[in-house]
Design a protein around this nucleic acid. Structure first.
Length: 914
RNA sequence: GGACCCAUAGCUCAGUUGGCUAGAGCGUACGAUUCACAUUCGUAAGGUCGCAGGUUCAAGCCCUGCUGGGUCCACCA
């Protein structure tokens, strides 16, 4: 492959991905399913393959029916970077992709689709609907998978799991059966949050509470045996009074103490209901008297349980009034409220009304006000599960990123209520429970477990049973995700379980992560993952939450098309830390694209060096001095090792090298430090810092210093080695451009995606440190030239040195980096402008007139260094510091003082010269 | 009411176990540029680290209180 002059990601990305996929390199190298070739009945993986570490991570399954949003983009960037890193480290890396049937979400979409076609769900039975949605989703599924590929996700496609696959259903049924047998599942008539529009119940966690204005009405309930006396109750929902089965007052409330045990007449009806004492009534709120409607209010339900009250359901599942006097029957709750208020007013029972703000439960999908509804549902008794999970968490078997999520999760487990797992929608896994249909078979249980959910009706022991029509809450099956994706079974050893990490959005801590832990511990006895990394939300550029209604949604695919997949990945990771919601910045993506282009050009340059070297070798031309020397007559370019004959041997092997000058030693040191940092950062999930380190090493150090210096030296063996090292180190984060380059270079083999993570480079540390002096000199020259009056100073003034072997030996390098026209030894007395460098006698050959104009800058500089010196001296004057601070710090301070003092004296001399 | 998080340059954020003259990217200003890259190179300006105390030889970092912003949970008849 030939290098184009700029990197155009669109031209390479899909081919590169196809090549990876075709080569099968995303598949783990250790088998993921049991093998027993030697027939000894023991899983061979357990015996022989422990040499290779496994690294397992599963994808939080994106909705099979949708497109990826920017959150998925971040998810893939993070997870794939981890996967690729550990693959390079030599682990058997397994990134398991998934697709979610997204029960309720998809159902809502499908129901709208049905409505558009003029149909409703009630025209079909459950099995028909299931089949229809299946087809509907199947059509869409490819989209999301293509988008994952475009993002570079190196997942094992053969193992893609759809949340309605047979093995998922099997696993869920097995668990459910175990729970049923363990007594953790019960059927209960409880109040559930019910959406009258979608006609399904929700778990507590799916409910959105919003503060809204409302009205609190005071209604008079007359005493049954003394119509002269009455209690005033306060309510926001007068229409539910038909369901009242008591009125409650606080036991401490002296105003009403005598009335407890008496009865009141329920307005608009003939019923009388008792007055009870219960803590629930708050004497401070309203009149301190509260009506109790156990069938339509969560608190009242509990009061009802305590006092054994009857539950009268007065609102139906379609949101209409039932079990009410004829006049109100079949009205909607809204109409009924109006009528009730009107009638109460006419009878003089409506005493007052107050405007208030209260929080109201809404459907998180359609925003309809949820109705607390009395329903028979399946519940999971979570207490034991939560307790077990907490034990493992408290034993620190899971490491949380960010750390504080551990506390938040434990707090959640402590306040957990039982989990309603029944949903009244067809798109999901059928609950494998059947209800007895023969009334007279009194000895048989009312409900039995059976896996044959494809049948509406079954027979067992001569008794007929009818299937429960409901499906599981999607989180019930999702909580098995790590178990299912790793093919964990009760029978087999599994090197991939627990997962190394669970990476997902911070908003899923309760709904998903908490349940995966409970389920993992319950089923396997082990936590399902060793670490949890939770990313925050990607906000829009102004820090606002993205939403369709606000119109500020950013489509990741558009960015991939515009800037490339790598640029998107690098950009979205930058500036992000665990658990924090952070604004999206297109500029960061642009910075990412620029890095890719930079790397491309770096590689292009190095390839030309390699090509030149190859053709020279081929033509039998021995390595000579750099051509730039011709301009500089009279100066002999003696550089360390440029002519070292031993190097000829070194560069013949494509990855062997030697370091021959300070810049080379220095870049080796910098690259090693970069590798240390990247390894540390990935281990600690500091993605942004890892990328930042690479960015700076590649750009500021490798390109701007090392490569510039290599324009003179051209140590080809080292260039090959260092470039390969940096490419591999960046590969986890920018897989496409690094692979494209890898495939274009003449000396690389195979895929970079399966290369070996680089070893540390060998170098001479003293020489590396020496190069820092060159950097300081060069920076000082550049800074001073810029600060001098006039333009184009770099071209005007020569650099003079006096008795300075460092400068003398490296004059070509310094000349190239500073662009001064010449570097000469100082002859005669000092002239020009002396540079403010300790230990170096360097002058810029500047006319006296210009030096004078520079005087102010110099004075300011002396003052500033003086201030720094004062601070240091102050520190040393403090006996406590000298005595108590670590010795090396004290020494460091002393050294700094010496340095500053020397610098000041030099600057002063310089000033005096002027 | 309970829990958690945040506050550092104009903007977005780093700052690892307390030890630099508090950093980066973007933006801004000035300058350069036939020789890999204008998706480039160099230089610079810009900060009382939200406020007030405390611990320490030493605090952006630890402790206490306050102010401002955000998130979640519970409750709201």
């Amino acid at each position: 492959m030939k290098f184009a002059s700029s990197y155009e990601p669109g031209e390479y990305e899909s081919d590169i991905y196809a090549a990876w996929e075709y080569a099968g390199i995303f598949n783990p190298t250790t088998p993921t399913k049991p093998i027993d070739d030697d027939g000894d009945g023991v899983d061979d993986r357990e015996e022989g393959n422990k040499k290779r570490n496994t690294y397992s991570i599963v994808m939080p399954p994106p909705n099979a029916n949708g497109n990826l949003h920017i959150g998925h983009g971040l998810t893939v960037a993070l997870e794939d970077s981890l996967t690729r890193y550990y693959r390079l480290r030599g682990d058997s890396a397994w990134y398991v992709p998934g697709a979610d049937h997204a029960g309720f979400e998809t159902w809502v979409v499908y129901e709208k689709f049905l409505e558009k076609q003029g149909h409703t769900r009630f025209e079909y039975d459950r099995n028909e609907l299931y089949a229809k949605v299946w087809d509907f989703v199947a059509e869409q599924r490819g989209n999301m998978e293509l988008q994952l590929r475009a993002l570079g996700a190196s997942c094992a496609w053969d193992d893609l799991t759809f949340t309605l696959d047979e093995n998922v259903i099997d696993r869920v049924y097995t668990t459910f059966e175990k729970m049923w047998n363990d007594g953790l599942i019960y059927r209960g008539e409880k109040l559930v949050n019910y959406c009258p529009k979608h006609r399904t119940a929700f778990a507590d966690i799916e409910v959105t509470h919003k503060d809204e204005p409302g009205t609190l009405w005071d209604i008079e309930y007359k005493l049954a045996d003394d119509p002269e006396k009455a209690l005033i109750v306060s309510t926001t929902r007068p229409e539910t009074l038909f369901g009242d089965t008591a009125v409650a007052i606080n036991p401490e409330d002296k105003r009403y103490k005598d009335l407890v045990g008496k009865k009141v007449k329920l307005p608009l009806t003939d019923r009388t209901i008792p007055i009870i004492a219960d803590e629930h009534a708050d004497p401070e709120y309203g009149t301190g008297v509260v009506k109790i409607t156990p069938a339509h209010d969560f608190d009242d339900f509990e009061v009802g349980e305590r006092h054994d009250l009857e539950r009268i359901q007065v609102i139906s599942e379609s949101g209409k009034m039932i079990n009410v006097p004829e006049k109100y029957y079949d009205l909607t709750t809204k109409e009924c409220r109006k009528q009730v208020l009107k009638d109460l007013k006419e009878q003089g029972l409506l005493k007052d009304e107050h405007k208030i703000t209260h929080s109201v439960a809404h459907c998180y999908k359609c925003d309809t006000v949820l109705e607390p509804m009395l329903k028979e549902q399946w519940f999971v008794d979570v207490e034991k599960l939560a307790k077990e999970a907490m034990k493992h968490i408290e034993a620190d078997e899971i490491k949380f990123f960010p750390e504080n999520k551990k506390k938040v999760l434990l707090n959640y487990y402590n306040n957990l209520r039982d989990w309603n797992i029944s949903r009244q929608i067809p798109w999901g896994i059928a609950i494998p429970m059947f209800k007895k249909a023969d009334e007279d078979a009194t000895d048989e249980p009312d409900w039995i477990f059976d896996r044959r959910t494809n049948l509406k009706e079954i027979e067992k022991g001569g008794v007929r049973y009818v299937r429960d029509e409901d499906t599981f809450d999607t989180w019930f099956s999702s909580s098995h995700w790590p178990i299912i994706c790793t093919n964990w079974t009760e029978e087999n050893y599994n090197p991939y379980y627990p997962l190394n990490v669970m990476e997902t959005g911070a908003d899923l801590l309760f709904s998903w992560v908490s349940r995966m832990i409970m389920m993992g511990v319950y089923i396997t006895g082990e936590v399902p993952f060793r670490e949890v990394y939770m990313h925050g939300m990607v906000l829009d550029s102004k820090g606002q939450k993205m939403s369709k209604s606000k119109g500020n949604v950013i489509n990741p695919m558009e960015l991939v098309t515009k800037y490339g997949s790598d640029a998107f990945r690098l950009g979205i990771m930058r500036g992000r830390s665990a658990g924090m919601n952070q604004a999206f910045s297109e500029n960061s993506v642009i910075a990412g694209r620029n890095l890719c282009n930079k790397l491309w050009n770096i590689s292009r340059l190095i390839q030309t060096f390699v090509d030149d070297e190859d053709s020279e070798l081929k033509n039998g031309i021995s390595r000579g001095l750099p051509e730039v020397t011709t301009e500089d007559e009279g100066v002999s370019p003696v550089t360390t090792g440029a002519n070292d004959p031993s190097r000829e041997d070194a560069i013949l092997g494509s990855f062997s090298y030697s370091t021959d000058n300070m810049g080379e030693d220095w870049i080796c040191r910098e690259i090693n430090e970069c590798l240390d940092q990247v390894e540390y950062d990935i281990k600690n999930y500091r993605f942004s810092e890892a990328v930042d380190t690479l960015y700076q090493t590649i750009w500021d150090k490798y390109a701007d210093w090392f490569l510039e210096s290599q324009k003179i030296f051209k140590n080809v063996g080292l260039l090959k080695t260092t470039l390969s090292t940096l490419l591999i180190a960046l590969h986890p984060f920018a897989p496409f451009v690094t692979e494209t380059i890898w495939q274009s270079l003449s000396w690389t083999e195979g895929f970079i995606a399966t290369a070996k993570w680089p070893a540390r480079l060998e170098y001479d540390p003293i020489s590396a440190e020496e190069f820092e002096n060159i950097r300081i000199i060069v920076s000082e020259v550049r800074g001073t030239l810029t600060a001098l009056p006039g333009t184009n100073n770099a071209k005007k003034y020569k650099l003079l040195y006096d008795n300075d072997s460092l400068v003398e030996d490296n004059q070509f390098l310094i000349k190239t980096l500073t662009r001064v026209p010449a570097i000469d030894p100082l002859e005669g007395s000092p002239r020009g402008l002396r540079l403010a460098l300790a230990n170096h006698e360097l002058y810029l050959d500047v006319p006296e007139k210009v030096v004078k104009e520079y005087k102010d800058t110099l004075t300011e500089r002396i003052l500033s260094v003086g201030r720094e010196l004062d601070a240091l001296n102050l520190r040393m004057e403090n006996p406590n510091y000298v005595n108590r601070a670590p010795a090396h710090l004290v020494k460091e301070t002393q050294d700094q003082i010496k340095e500053k003092e020397a610098l000041i004296s030099r600057l002063k001399t310089e000033l005096e010269l002027i």
